[in-house]
Every structure is written in C-alpha cells, then in structure tokens.
Write a protein that binds this DNA or RNA. Structure first.
Length: 936
DNA sequence: GCAAGGTC
C-alpha cells in the first residue's frame, strides 16, 4: 500500500482526485482526520505541525528553585503529538504501508513538517521506504510528476527549521519567565518576550518616541487664483515650501500682475496595473476596506475553506504558468462581475503583471469560483471577496494611460505653476476602484498668454510628526524586515494587543509595552532587534547547505543567551522594581485633591474604586462601577480643572464606558444628594467641594468642630448642617433599599430600567418599601408598571413590611420563617389563624404558636384565635393518622378548626369545603371514613 | 502560564 501524506486536508483531497483519475475515491472522515482511498493508495492530510516542542516535565513550574528561568537554556526538549487523532491514523496506515510519500508544502517549514511525519512513520515501521514529493502548484501534471519523480527528504533543511523552533522556544520561554517573575506578574498579566513580537513592539515604541520628540516647524505655502475667461484656477508658487518667513513675505508681495504663461509642457504617463496579491497585499487592501489584519485573515480563511479563493497564506506575487487565467475570467459569466470580466477578456494584457517575489509553495491569492452576495452572506466578507476578484481582474488588464499638462507662469517676477492630468486609457482602473485616480482637467494654454490675478494666498503650515502605525502598515514593515511569516504576522499583532502591550488604531504602546521594551533594550537588546531574525535565517541557510551543524548554531545561540542572563540576573531586583514602578503609572490618575499624593485605580475582587496612595493617612476615594461593567483604565486625556487623567471602563465586546475625570464625575454624582439639604445651592456645593467635602456621607460623619473650622461657620449652623446631612443620608439609604427591592421584583424591559421606575416612585413621594406597601395602584401604573406587576410588587412589599413588624413584635426569626412559608406573615392574619392549622402547616409546637399569637395580638390590640392545648392537639391528630390524609390537606383542615377524627365527624361539609377549598366529595368521603375508623 | 510556526 502507498501512503501519501500532505500538509493539510484540502491538498490531500486534491492529490487524491488527480491521482485517482477515473477510479472512485473513497472518503473516510473521523473528526479532524480524513483519508482518501483509491486502488492501493491512501492519501491523508496533516494539520500543519502535528507535534510540538516543550521542555521536559520538571520545568513546568515557573517558580521552581531548582529550575529558574536560566535553566531553560540547557533544559532537555521533547516532542509531543498535538494532533493525536491524525498521528494515530497516520501510524495505523504506516504500519501496513510499503511506500510512504511525504507531500507537504515546498518550503522550509513544509520540510520540517515532513520530517516530523517521517519520524512518526518510522517509529511504527522501521523499514518502510519513505520519499518526498516536491511540487510548486497543485495541478494534475505537477502532482503526478512530483509523485513519480519523488526524491528524498532534505534532512538538512528540516534541521534548519528545527533549529528555529528550539531557539524560539528557549529564548522566548526563558526571557518571558524571567521578566514576569522579576516584575511579580501573575498568570493573567505575564510579560512575554519573543524573537518576532519583541522587535515588532519595539518598532511601535520607537515610533511613539519619535512622535513625542517631534518639534513642528513652521513653513509657508503661496498660491494664487488666476482668471482665464470665466474660469478660476489655483496656481502654486514654484518654490514650494518657504521655511523662512521673510522670503515668503517677499514672494507674496512680489506676486502681482501681469500674469504671463511662460511654458506649457504636455506629456504622457503610464500608470501600471497592480501586481497579484500576496498575504501582505491582501491585508493592506482589506485595511482600506476597514478590516483589521486578524479579521481579514479570518474572512479569507473562510472564503478559502468554502472554495471561493485560493490559499490565502502566500508570499507569491507571480501567477504560475499552469494557472488558466482565461478560464478563471470566463467563470464569472452570468454573475455580478460578468460585465467587468468580459471587458478584461476583450482587452487582456499580453502577460499578467508580476510582483517581485516568486515562491514555489502556493500561487498568489485569486478567486477560484464565482460567488454571489447571497452565498457569501456576510457583508464584509463579500467586500473582501469582491476586492480579490477585482484585483485579479486588474492584474490581467492593460496599464492605464494619462495625458499630463504642466503650465508655468510668472506673476511679475514670481514663478507659479499648475499641473493637470487626464485619464486617456482607463485600463485596469475601469475594474479596480480601490485606488482613486483624481483627474484635473485644465483648459488649453498658449505661451505668452495673459491671465488676470483674482486673489493670492500665503498659508502658514506646520510640519507634522510621523504617523503611528496602522495594522497593515506595520505588517508591511514586518515583511520588509523579515519579521514573522505570511501566516503569523497578523497573529503577532493580536498577541501584542492581548498582552496589553499596544492599543488603539493606529497603534500605540501602553505603559507596560514601553517599560518592557526599554528594559529589554537595556539588558537583552538582541531580542528587540530585527537582526536576530536575519542572523537566524543566515544560520538556517548554512545548516540547510550543510556548512554548519544544528548543534553548532544552537551552542552559539545558547552561549549568547547565557551571557544575557549574566546581566539580567545581576540586575534582577532593579529590573523588577523598575518595571513595577513604571507600570503602576498606568493605575495612577493624578494628584489627590485632599493631600496631593497620587490617586490610584484600586481593585479588590470585582469591586474597583479610586483611592489615595496616602491611605490610611488620607482616606479620599471615589467609587467606580464594579468590574463586571468593565475594567477601569486610565486615559490620556487630563481634566483641566483637577489635573486628573480621565478614566474609562473596558469590557470585551462592549463599547468603552467613559467615566471622564473621576473627580468631576464624583462631584456630579454627589451634587444631587447635596441638593436635598435644605437651602443648599450650587454655590453652597462648590464651597463644600473647595474644602474637600465631596460626598454627603463625609458631611454626615464629620464632627461639628471640624466643619466649623473648614467652613469658618458658627457652631449652631455646623450642627444643623450635620443633622440635615444625617437625615438626607438616612433617606438615601431607604431609597437604595427601595431600588434594590424593585430590581429584585420587577423585570427590566426596554425603555424601562429599574432606576427609571425607582425615580418615578421617588417623585411621587414613595421613598421606601414601607411607603411602597401603602402605594396607590394609580401611582404604580403611572410609574411604568402593568397592573399585574403592581399587584405582585405591592404584595411583596406588604410581605416585607409585615415580616419586619412581626420581628419587631418579638417573633423569633427561625419560627417567623416558618410562618412566612405558611403565608401567615401578616400580623392580623397570623393572630386569627387556628393554632392547630399553623402547627400542622409549620411543624412548630402548638404551645409556642399560641404564645406568639398572644404577644402579637396584644401589640395590635385584638383578641387572638382560641388557644388549643398541646394535649388535645396531639391526641386529636393521632386519631386522624389512620385516614392517611396528605400533610397539606391536613393543614388546611387544621386551619378550619378540624384536627381530630371527632371534629371531622361533626363537621358541616358545605362550610368546610368553603373554608378549605377542598372538594366536597373528597370531604364527605373523608367524613364517612372517619365514621368507620373511629366508630360510634 | 512561556515562542513561533504550521493549520481550522
């Protein structure tokens, strides 16, 4: 049997289809593992790497004394299967195979993946012959030829790939652990370091520093408006930017009639059609459509898996010869792009455009089938597909041609100029609207022609700092520097965002990102420079060429890392302290208004607040919504009044909740409460704020001496104020209680939140649960509640009030709970209830019940229900036992005063049915049973 | 819990 192993399922499927010819291919799928069988051949796909490198067991504990970060440099490394199902399937077939062909992608990583497969195959079948097929396009001819002329695995090339794996793991893991431990960072906030991510982060940090250090310079631009007939045209001064004001002024003064055309230059310009799409160009194009790099790649992956486009991870910018371009244009017949496709077919350029990079593993990204808006569904994904289609069209279309015109003139002695352009041959631009071509059509000019000066202008401008990186710009830079690969660049950006190293769009570093970069630059500069990748690649080439061994390269790399650790360990305390000091900055929002020490965002569990770092000497604090609404983070904006950084709450998948200046917001929230003080005005509130009293609770808790001193007022006034504040505070507490009560019993609806209902109640004078229990129905329905909701709320409120009363009268909590469960929390209902019924319903002793009823009855001034003695109750209930009555029914009977066989026999069925709600027939049944059981 | 590289 011949086993063919491809890098991915989709390639396996196509290899099988090509090789099977007319034979039928049998597909067997088991989760992620799929195999394709025809004749004596099985083709299966891997999922890229199916094994992973990791340190041996003892190194998994980060804080192990025995294995500190440094020890990872020389730790043993093992390979673990990560795709167990696929490995199992491969080994199952390998056992029976007499030929195995590795058909992974034709690049370094593909060779390594192939070697991994080889090792797994040989582990179960020592003698099987293994060969390697290399193909640069997945077409029938290429594949057939590659399998027929299979070669052997290039172990040197694979070893080169493995060297990269080991170096990345050792450097990344050891430095990540060192930095995280030094800065006391936990599992959710580790400080990661890597050969690709660290230089990428450093680029963003560098750019930010350039922007900060930028000093804008003034310059001046001169222009004039000239009239030609009725048309007014704007000419620029030929000097361009004036950097010296006096020169600009002189030129401006010299700009006057007569205006004379001195030169008319016409020309032609070719506007080249764009080149085929590689991954980077795809991400850049998607960026213009408003997609992030990660979103673009996810959508492209989706389009690829559904067969709409070719493989989206490619560095190739040259279409392979085997690709039938005409056929791919014809496939758009009958669809949305038919007209454009026909136009391209009719005017196709001699050969398609080609970019600078040509690789052998995958073609450039192009459409592989016709999709409709409906099929593709998602709007953004459709736009991406359309872009790929139109780019494909553009690469097959003729270049565009422009006719250009440049007119020079003088205004007295000052030279001015204007340029125009007209698109004479639209070419590719007719099918590719993504880069706009602005036409400026100028009228005809002749040399010596005179124009009239209509206006002149001297604009003062400033040079601008360099722009922050957009995601696509950064990915372009990464590619230029050789950082990452087509498949990983966008992931690196996502990783930096996830580690909270960078934020925003365009991207800027966070304080943490900056601190980490600067620490690394100082102590482990190698890892922050893109040259580490370049050097590694050179070494890999040498290993592949056989001029260097893997071991030699690893030893050199490890020696270098060891000397970095000499430095790091010697400065461990300082590095850690520095990182901690600097990253705490992110939690600092500015000076405390009371004592001037820094205010910090503090967190304890899910609650968060802003507190003074001078605590406990200074207790100033402001509240923040709990972290379930989002983590509080500092913003760059600073409040001009309080010099505090603005704060916002960030939660995944939700828009940011901007709190603004924490003190402004604190003052605003508390102003409402202050206004409840009798005679309080806005000016009064301001006065209080000025002496650092920001909340009513602070005022209520203050000593009169302290208030007298702060406000310079007399004692009676201070005492009055504090008393008023206490009253307001008590009222507010009741309100809070009412709010809680409402949110517990009223379901929120769109447009009717809990606070809306609460506020409606407050405005009607209903401020607490006791008030609610006596509320009028009309007040409740006009507060936004339905009648049914109002009924429930009312009865719940009464219940709460009644329970409170019962407690107050002296009914112990434990028993009270039982009475509540039996529906007897209303004191009036409770005292009137038959003690036997209560005893049966609650299980409490009848004596205790009578005692409680007596106490409560006295308090509310009524006579309690007739007492029942323990003896008569116990005896009576015993006589009922043989009847086997359900406990619930027994209680109902008890409440109606029937708790013995005798009482049952004497009962009036009509009346009993009304009292208990039990069916008459059941009752008479019981009664006759009672007569039989009890006799007489 | 670390990296970067495959692929889904």
């Amino acid at each position: 049997m011949h086993l063919i192993i491809a890098e991915k399922n989709i390639v396996a499927e196509r290899i099988a289809a090509f090789l099977a010819g007319k034979q039928k291919v049998q597909t067997k799928r088991d989760g992620v593992a799929t195999e394709y069988t025809f004749g004596d051949t099985i083709v299966m796909g891997l999922r890229g790497h199916v094994v992973e490198l990791d340190f041996t067991k003892g190194y998994s504990n980060w804080r192990s004394e025995e294995h500190p970060p440094r020890s990872l440099i020389h730790a043993d490394i093992e390979k673990h299967p990560t795709e167990k199902k696929i490995v199992a399937l491969m080994q199952k077939h390998a056992r029976k195979a007499d030929r195995v062909t590795i058909a992974t992608d034709f690049d370094t990583e593909g060779e390594l993946i192939g070697m991994e497969a080889f090792e797994l195959v040989r582990a179960v079948n020592k003698n099987v012959s293994v060969d390697r097929a290399r193909f640069s396009a997945i077409t029938k001819d290429e594949i057939t030829k590659a399998i027929d002329e299979a070669q052997s695995i290039d172990f040197n090339l694979a070893k080169a790939g493995e060297t990269r794996q080991v170096i990345d793991l050792v450097w990344g893991a050891s430095l990540t652990r060192f930095l995280s431990i030094a800065a006391h960072r936990g599992s959710d906030s580790i400080l990661s370091v890597g050969r690709v991510q660290s230089p990428t982060l450093a680029m963003i940090v560098d750019r930010e520093k350039e922007i900060e250090a930028f000093v804008p310079e003034k310059y001046w631009m001169l222009s004039l408006a000239a009239k030609k007939g009725k048309e007014e045209l704007s000419f620029r001064h030929a000097h361009g930017r004036f950097t010296i004001k006096s020169e600009a002024d002189a030129a401006f003064a010299g700009t006057k009639d007569p205006l004379t055309v001195t030169e008319v230059i016409t020309g032609k310009k070719t506007d080249k059609a764009p080149t085929p799409l590689d991954t980077t160009a795809l991400i850049v194009g998607a960026g213009r459509l408003g997609l992030s790099a990660a979103s673009a790649m996810n959508r492209a992956e989706d389009l690829y898996m559904r067969g709409f486009i070719s493989y989206p991870r490619t560095d190739n910018t040259v279409y392979p010869k085997s690709l039938n371009l005409r056929q791919h244009l014809k496939m758009f017949a009958g669809g949305e792009f038919e007209r454009d496709a026909n136009m391209v077919l009719a005017n196709m350029r001699g050969s398609p455009t080609r970019g600078k990079k040509e690789t052998t593993d995958h073609p450039p990204v192009y459409p592989t089938s016709k999709g409709t808006r409906q099929e593709i569904g998602d709007d953004a994904t459709w736009k991406l597909y359309e872009f790929i289609v139109r780019r494909f069209f553009a690469t097959l279309s003729p270049d565009a041609e422009w006719k250009t015109l440049k007119v020079n003139m003088t205004a007295a002695a000052e030279p001015y100029t204007i340029t125009g352009g007209r698109l004479t041959v639209p070419g590719w631009r007719a099918v590719y609207p993504y880069s706009k071509a602005e036409e400026t059509v100028l009228p005809e000019f002749t040399v010596g022609e005179k124009l009239t000066l209509a206006d002149k202008l001297c604009e003062e401008k400033e040079t601008q700092p360099p722009a922050r990186y957009s995601q696509s710009r950064l990915i372009q830079r990464m590619e230029e520097l050789g950082l990452g690969t087509k498949s990983t660049r966008h992931e690196v950006i996502s990783k930096l965002i996830g580690r909270k190293y960078i934020e925003g769009n365009p991207m800027k570093p966070t304080i943490v990102g900056r601190a980490v970069t600067e620490s690394l630059e100082q102590f482990a500069g190698t890892i922050t420079a893109p040259t580490m990748t370049n050097t590694l690649e050179e070494h890999m080439e040498e290993i592949a060429a056989g001029t260097k061994t893997m071991n030699a390269v690893l030893t050199e790399s490890k020696t270098m890392l060891s000397s970095i650790f000499d430095d790091l360990e010697a400065n461990k305390e300082a590095i850690g302290q520095d990182l901690m000091d600097r990253t705490i900055e992110g939690q600092t929002v500015g000076p405390c208004p009371v004592c001037g020490k820094p205010l910090r965002i503090r967190r304890a569990g899910s609650s968060q607040f802003i507190g003074c770092s001078g605590y406990p000497d200074c207790t100033f604090n402001t509240s923040l919504p709990p972290a379930t609404w989002g983590n509080a983070v500092r913003m760059d904006e600073v409040c001009p009044i309080h010099q505090l950084n603005h704060v916002q709450l960030l939660r995944k998948g939700a828009p940011a909740w901007k709190i603004g200046c924490p003190l402004c917001s604190h003052i605003q929230t508390n102003a409402e409460a202050f206004r409840m003080l009798p005679g309080m005005t806005d000016a009064g509130i301001e006065k209080l704020n000025k002496v650092h009293i920001y909340a009513i609770s602070e005022l209520a808790g203050m000593s009169s001496d302290e208030l007298m001193r702060r406000l310079s007022i007399a004692r009676p006034e201070a005492e009055q104020m504090i008393a008023d504040a206490e009253n307001v505070l008590a009222l507010l507490r009741k309100r809070t209680e009412l709010k809680k009560f409402i949110s517990a019993h009223v379901a929120p609806r769109r447009g009717r939140g809990h606070s809306k209902v609460s506020n409606a109640f407050f405005s009607k004078g209903i401020v607490d649960v006791a008030g609610l229990s006596k509320a009028k129905m009309s007040d409740m329905t006009s507060s936004g509640l339905s009648e049914a909701e109002a009924e429930t709320l009312l009865s719940e409120a009464r219940k709460v009030v009644n329970i409170a009363k019962m407690k107050e009268y002296g009914v112990p909590t434990v028993t009270l709970k039982k009475y509540v469960a039996a529906g007897c929390e209303d004191p009036a209902v409770f005292v009137a209830a038959n003690p036997a019924g209560l005893a049966l319903a609650t299980g409490a002793s009848v004596t205790t019940i009578c005692k409680h009823q007596k106490i409560v009855a006295e308090k509310i001034g009524v006579t309690p229900a007739e007492a029942v003695s323990k003896a008569s109750f116990d005896e009576g209930v015993a006589t009922l036992t043989p009847l086997g009555i359900e406990p619930e029914m027994l209680a109902s009977l008890g409440f109606a005063g029937v708790y013995s066989c005798d009482l049952l026999k004497k009962a009036n069925i009509e009346k009993l049915a009304r009292q208990t709600g039990i069916d008459k027939e059941i009752l008479s049944d019981l009664k006759s049973k009672a007569k039989m059981v009890c006799g007489k």
